[in-house]
Design a protein around this nucleic acid. Structure first.
Length: 869
RNA sequence: GGGCGCUUAGCUCAGUUGGCUAGAGCACCGCCCUUACAAGGCGGGGGUCACUGGUUCGAGUCCAGUAGCGCCCACCA
């Protein structure tokens, strides 16, 4: 039973109805097209505790559009959903909850804490999947994955162990970025740098032999507690004699050497650098080259260690001040300069990170980047837009080893065990029970892996890897990855490395990069500025279809996406337009029971042939745009066609065909059916709900639109009279508008007899303009008349009784002025001998044709003006 | 310090290899309650394509430079 169609489209009612129908029908599963070629997209897994924001809405809309179209094209289309356990982010959320109860995770202990996180996941983990249903994501829920699933966790172990055995995974003492608030190591890209208006403190370090000082410059005086040398460039004339001598480190009075090292810049500061191997990456390198002591003076809380002598227990920033005043007291400060420099912050909690020496697990990425780079170089994988490839290459080529261990509890535990008896390290997929030395006293590494380690495996572990599953066989490599530029390095690069390393194939041939959703003024959406739009609220107010259309229309490739309420409202109004157009076709034109496929008229009327021809052109055009991932252009094309041609010109032309002409009316009905049907199909990927609903009113009831075949329109030829029809109609409307002649006043129009036009042309002009066109001689000019022309057709409108002759004159004068300007421009070109010589012949011929046309038209307008007197 | 992007109508943006008089949506103005839609229809006004120079028969489009804005990368102690 078909629902009654209200005059206004009600998205909330329709949208809540269709999702369960689709899901129950099995349409989201690739098995719905059992013989189809596979097509697969894996979703960028949102954080399990997350909520959907507008960025997801865009990202998902793009993927859903690609999937829905491929599904309609008969592919076995799989959009694989899932979530990420999101180590730090999730742990922080649960810890925050605990803090509200006055507890820390240590009060609970590791096992209980993890239980608590699972409980949290159970409570909030399906929020995002509910939200995905609301925006219409046609994902295959039966294949949903979580990075912490058993299978995916085993894959993580397998990868870790394999990399370890290949020597790519190693454990070492290195300088890492430590977040003193999150209490974990971070990788380079989890640290963001911000300019800080700091100070460069120049400190005098005295020689032990009393022969004066070397002055070093530092932004972090507190680290001097851990200095084990001062380094200068070996070629630096100023310090040539100092190399090899010994200095007395102020305050702690430790003897430290002066070393020569090429890593030191002559120009910076004083050209002499204090070396703190345990707290600075460059100093660490210098330390290794000169075998210097690594003295940790800052602990995991960012307080000074015992090695810091009198400052033990003091916060690092307090210590900075305390040491500065002490040095001032000792008169060892040469000067303090203002010095802007960038300071690393934890991207999760914004705390200033502390570079420190720490025993961590690393991935030797140099072993992995080669194939990942080559995959893009050779075109096995292509970025869209292509320019992102430069950033990708640059980043990949300058990668440093990836610190993957995290001092968290929520994450994949590192599969390494240490034997207390013999110091052996056992890395194993299975939990070991005994060391080779016979001891059973094994401790598993306390740390977990970086979240991005497991998400880097996502395209193949979700399909079953390392098992050779049917899904892996069928859907891997996947077809396209859709994501924002902000996680190219975090995620895309890692997937490329792991994918090429473990499967010998890039995980996807196309990488579609989109921008960030911004507000209507192009500003970043954020909670603090209050300009953030909540996609769920938008869905409630405007409907998911409107939100999706608005996002896609704004998503020009390679640019950020400005999303304004106005734009969403415009999209909503379009939905209403579509609704009413179909309602009209169904209820007033009595077009129902349209077949799912084919059913195109074999002998269409002229207007029908025109709209069918346009439909075919538009279908071809948007398919091309789709294949280039130019989704916004594809839907702009479709939108303009639907609104201005299909639901405007054509529907108006169709209306004018009266009941009396049974034959033409039938042709129109047979045209409206497939045209509207195909428009619904073409719009379905972006506006799935409203199109499915309309389909149920229009279709023959035998199937869902979601799995209906993508249109394949036969070639039609449009009658050329359509062009003059549209031009003359517009001209007459303009005339009416300019002279304020109400539509109900019939305008007698003479169509110059030189133009041979079919009967339908006359009736359409009459119907569309309220004029009374008659063929005939050019009327007598005695009463005054105006002239309208288009595509070689001339019509004359007598002015007598309608308007003042003088009122018409400015209209013609403006037309003449425009024509003259056109002639001047055109002549200018043609009179240039170089143009004739060098421009291609067709361009010249075209220009000549245009000039002739304009000149002829000008002559007529001039003659016409003269007649007006 | 390197790299990338942007600058086109009041606003947000299209404009793919150079080739009709540079487009869209929103906003604005006028007319129309024409029986699918007034959350609509019809019509209209509005642009020195940031600036300078170059290449070319021809530049919004290509090249060089300048300015402003935005983003990314960077071990400037």
């Amino acid at each position: 039973m078909k629902a009654v169609m209200n005059q206004t489209y009600q998205p909330e009612e329709v949208e809540s109805r269709w999702y369960p129908v689709w899901e129950a029908s099995g349409s989201f599963r690739p098995e719905v097209n059992p013989d189809g070629e596979p097509y697969c997209i894996v979703i960028p897994p949102p954080n399990v505790t997350g909520v959907l924001h507008t960025g997801h809405a865009l990202d998902h809309a793009m993927q859903d559009i690609l999937i829905r179209r491929k599904r309609m094209q008969g592919y076995a289309a799989l959009w694989l959903p899932g979530t990420d356990h999101a180590g730090i982010a999730t742990q922080n959320v649960v810890e925050r909850e605990l803090r509200d109860e006055g507890m820390t995770r240590h009060d609970l202990g590791r096992d209980q804490f993890i239980e608590q996180v699972w409980a949290w996941k159970a409570k909030s983990g399906n929020t995002i999947s509910k939200q995905m249903r609301k925006i219409g994501d046609s994902v295959d829920w039966s294949r949903e994955r979580f990075t912490f699933d058993e299978g995916l966790s085993e894959a993580v172990r397998k990868v870790f162990v394999t990399l370890y055995e290949q020597g790519v995974m190693y454990r070492a003492n290195r300088i890492i970025n430590w977040c003193p608030r999150c209490h974990t190591a971070l990788s380079e890209i989890e640290v963001y740098h911000e300019d800080d208006p700091g100070e460069l403190t120049h400190i005098k370090y005295p020689f032990t032999d009393g022969s004066g000082y070397i002055t070093v410059a530092t932004t972090r005086p507190e680290t001097m507690l851990g200095d084990s040398a001062v380094a200068v460039h070996p070629d630096d004339e100023r310090y040539k004699d100092a190399i090899g001598k010994t200095l007395l480190l102020p305050i702690l009075d430790r003897e430290i050497p002066v070393v020569g090292d090429e890593g030191v810049e002559h120009e910076f500061g004083t050209g002499a650098v204090k070396v703190t191997p345990a707290h600075d990456p460059l100093d660490f390198e210098i330390g290794l080259r000169h075998d210097l002591e690594q003295i940790k003076v800052i602990d995991t809380e960012a307080n000074i260690t015992r090695a810091g002598g009198p400052y033990v227990g003091m916060d690092r920033f307090e210590a900075r001040e305390a040491i500065r005043s002490k040095l001032r007291e000792l008169k060892l400060i040469d000067k303090i300069e203002e010095h802007e420099h960038s300071v690393g912050h934890c991207s999760r909690c914004h705390t200033v990170v502390e570079p420190m020496l720490s025993l961590q697990w690393f991935v030797a990425v140099q072993e992995l980047v080669g194939p990942a780079i080559d995959a893009v170089r050779t075109g096995e994988s292509t970025f869209h837009p292509k320019r992102w490839e430069n950033s990708y290459f640059h980043w990949m080529e300058n990668l440093r080893d990836w610190c993957v261990s995290r001092q968290l509890w929520w994450g994949h535990r590192i599969p390494a065990w240490y034997c207390d008896a013999c110091d052996e390290t056992i890395v194993s997929i299975e939990d070991p029970t005994e060391c080779s030395c016979g001891s059973t006293d094994l401790r598993q590494d306390e740390d977990v892996l970086d979240t991005w380690f497991s998400s880097g495996l996502w395209p193949f572990t979700t399909l079953g890897w390392p098992e050779q599953t049917a899904d892996l066989e069928k859907f891997y490599p996947t077809d396209v990855l859709v994501t924002g530029f902000d996680i190219i390095f975090f995620w895309v690069a890692r997937m490329m490395m792991f994918g090429t390393h473990f499967t010998n194939q890039a995980p996807f041939p196309d990488i579609l990069i989109h921008g960030m959703v911004r507000d209507g003024e192009g500003k970043k959406m954020s909670k603090s500025t209050g300009n953030a739009l909540d996609p769920l609220e938008l869905v409630d107010e405007y409907g998911a279809d409107a939100l999706r259309l608005a996002l896609i229309q704004a998503a020009a490739p390679g640019h950020d996406i400005p999303l304004s309420l106005d734009a969403i409202d415009a999209a909503r109004r379009f939905g209403n337009k579509l609704w009413n157009a179909v309602r009209f076709v169904v209820e007033f034109m009595d077009v129902t029971d349209v077949p799912i496929e084919g059913g195109y008229p074999t002998d269409p009327g002229p207007e029908d042939a025109w709209i069918l021809a346009r439909l075919g052109e538009v279908r071809a055009e948007i398919d091309e745009l789709f294949d280039e991932y130019r989704l916004s252009d594809a839907f702009a094309t479709l939108y303009n066609f639907a609104w201005s041609e299909g639901f405007d010109w054509y529907l108006e032309m169709a209306k004018s065909i009266g009941e009396a002409d049974a034959e033409r009316r039938e042709s129109m009905r047979q045209t409206l059916g497939p045209v509207v049907r195909d428009m619904l199909k073409l719009f379905h990927p972006v506006m799935p709900f409203i199109t499915e609903e309309l389909w149920s009113h229009l279709g023959d009831g035998s199937g869902l639109l979601i799995t209906a075949p993508w249109p394949d329109v036969p070639i039609y030829e449009a009658p050329h009279e359509i062009e003059s029809l549209k031009g003359i109609v517009t001209g007459i409307r303009q005339f009416r508008s300019q002279h304020h002649i109400a539509r109900k006043v019939p305008i007698p129009v003479t169509v110059a007899s030189s133009s041979e036009l079919p009967e339908w042309w006359y009736s359409q002009v009459a119907s569309l303009t309220g004029a009374r066109p008659e063929p005939g001689m050019k009327p007598d000019s005695a009463t005054g008349q105006t002239r309208i022309s288009a595509d070689g057709v001339e019509v004359f409108v007598p002015l007598g009784g309608l308007v003042d002759v003088d009122a018409e004159r400015p209209r013609i004068e403006k037309a003449i002025a425009d024509l003259e300007a056109g002639i001047a421009r055109s002549r200018g070109k043609l009179d240039n001998p170089n143009f004739r010589d060098r421009a291609p012949a067709d361009v010249v011929a075209q220009e000549e044709g245009r000039l002739a046309e304009i000149e002829a038209e000008l002559q007529k307008q001039l003659a016409h003006l003269a007649e007006l007197g």
